[in-house]
Simulated assay, not measured.
Amino acid sequence: MRIMCLNGWGGKLHDSLVAYVAEASPDVLCLQEVVHTPASAEAWLEYRDGDHILPQRANFFRDVAAALPDHAATFCPAAQGVLWDGEEVVPSQWGLATFVRNSFPVIGQIQAFVHKGFSPDGYGDHPRSRNAHAVRVHDYARDRAVAVVHTHGLRDVAAGKSDTPERIEQARRLAEIAVRIADDGDRLVVCGDFNVEPESETFQILAGIGLTDLVTTRGFTSTRTAHYGKPGRFADYMLVDGLTEPVSFEVVRDPVVSDHCPLVLEI
């Protein structure tokens, strides 16, 4: 089974990302920063947050789902805010998406929040709502269940990626979701753009439920691409429990499909 985790950057590098995902065709794709605007027929809209302006693929979720026709696609909104089409305001949802190959039946799932709750009337002030999605699938080839959990950690403009009480609570909630989704004997994978540094207490909390990070323990020095120009080269992590035996793990640097690198695990 191949599991991919990727922050899609709102589809800014849409063509490269969709082509890469279609070719790689992971069994489970955990995708963060996903835009879903079903009421709009436009290909591109614009996100505006003060001086921060970013093109957004209006129906990024639909586009990735079309690239993975043999997968069940689930969108998990964290908030509904607005994007812009010139001077026209367009309501749009933002959150996570999970894609699971149809040959792996989804036998359990949890959609929950790790920070705040659903924001229906705007994205809100930072740090904004953040959710998580967990799926438990049956692997017929190995006759076992595999639980996969992913999240997008909160962004804190003032604190950067340093630990805050909100981030500690976020990690605790993530650990609780992981414990709830996985039965005894399941393989467990927890991943996402955590928005923290490797020294974060997040990893001590996740170690408390038996998880080990693959990015930092295997010598990778960054999970960001050249499109990210700020200090701090880590954001994305993938952790496994003691029963999970990685066949391979890679931080993919080529092709460049986002300001984040895809993480790919084979178990």
Rank of each mutant, 00 (worst) to 15 (best):
Q32G: 11
Q32S: 13
V264A: 04
V240A: 09
A141I: 07
G95C: 07
I209D: 03
I110V: 10
V257D: 00
S92K: 02
H227Y: 12
F113V: 00
I205E: 02
D143M: 05
T217C: 08
V135W: 10
P120F: 13
I168V: 12
V114Y: 05
R233V: 15
A65D: 11
L206I: 03
T217Q: 10
A97C: 09
G153T: 00
G210I: 02
G153R: 02
A73C: 08
A43R: 15
A134L: 03
W94A: 07
R187C: 03
V257K: 00
H71P: 04
G219V: 00
V64F: 03
E169N: 12
E87F: 13
I267W: 01
I209L: 11
G122K: 06
C191K: 05
L54H: 15
V89C: 12
E42T: 06
G117C: 15
E88K: 10
H126I: 12
V34E: 06
I3Q: 00
Q80L: 07
R253W: 15
V135R: 02
V215K: 01
H227N: 11
A78N: 10
K161I: 11
S16K: 15
V82N: 12
M4S: 05
H138K: 15
M4I: 00
R57S: 04
I177V: 03
P246Y: 08
A22R: 15
A67C: 10
D183S: 13
A132F: 01
A67D: 13
R187H: 13
I3C: 06
D15Y: 14
H152K: 03
Y20I: 08
A19S: 15
H152Q: 10
D70E: 13
V35N: 12
E199P: 09
M238K: 00
G208Y: 05
E23F: 15
G160Y: 04
M1C: 07
E23K: 15
R155E: 12
P55K: 11
G192D: 06
C30R: 03
H150G: 02
D241V: 06
S92A: 07
G81F: 05
T98F: 13
R187M: 04
H115E: 02
Q93H: 11
E169Y: 06
L68W: 04
V100Y: 03
Q111F: 13
H14W: 13
F61A: 01
L154C: 03
I267M: 11
H227W: 14
V90S: 06
R180T: 05
I177R: 01
T202Q: 10
L174G: 00
V240C: 09
Q109V: 08
E250K: 14
L211Y: 05
R218G: 11
V21W: 01
V100H: 01
A182I: 00
V18Q: 11
V90G: 02
I107P: 14
A112E: 08
W9Y: 14
V157T: 15
W9C: 12
V148C: 02
